[in-house]
Amino acid sequence: MHIVVCIKQVPDSAQIRVHPVTNTIMRQGVPSIVNPYDLFSLEEALRLRDRLGGAVTVVTMGPPSAVESLRKCLTYGADRAVLLTDRFFAGSDTLATSYALSKAIEKIGAAFCAPDIVFAGKQTIDGDTAQVGPGIARRLGLVQLTYIQKVVACDTAAGTLTVERRAEGGTQTLATRLPCLVTMLEGVNEIRRGTIQDALRAARAEIVTWSAAEAGIEDVTRCGLRGSPTVVKRVFAPPPRAEKAATVDVSGRPAADADALLDAVVARRPALATDLATLIAGY
């Protein structure tokens, strides 16, 4: 069984600071991490490989520094890592990103072994669109199974996969044919720590690195900015509300301040007094 897992290197949002005056993000010194959502998919892939045999290949499209995230995935136990890197990819939106990744996955299939399952994360913590997984599935003509909370059964001989999917208002149990694309829900498993052997292997492992041409992309106009139908035209700070926040005077005595705050709330919206009385009575 061959499983490909798409991972993205993202800035660690927990360490991002916003410049207090200019409102812009201060990226300097912010460490990069593997997109946290991708680790649930990687863990599921590793479990399937442990159970059914085969190999897990991780792939990312990103700058040369993204090898760090690929190596991290090898320390968890992935077998092989592929970096797709080229200046033609700069500025890709989700359509261009899924195009490049689908080409790379086809090439991985040709160079190593065609994948039975392609995993992607549910979404990223930076772009946060959840569009790349479905995009890759469409381009490769694979069935897409998003928001999966459990892989119930995988029968490689019969070529079938059964999963539980989080839907609006309930859980679907779905059966489909391999190959397919799966995105896992967050919190459904926990990434393993990996063994010492994995860590040693990861440190030395050769990362397969492909340019656009090496990945089999002939038409680079479908990549990067040129291949992206969406155009970011304007970045701006949200306007403050016309009315500035009215500040409640503080005395330093909490009981008095609480009363002053409630007075101000009711003065602004008298109906809230009735609403609160009703809510409290019904509680």
Partner: peptide, 10 residues
């Protein structure tokens, strides 16, 4: 991402 900013996309 990150900052207190919005972007307009076409």
């Amino acid at each position: 991402f990150g900052g207190s900013l919005l972007c307009t996309i076409y």
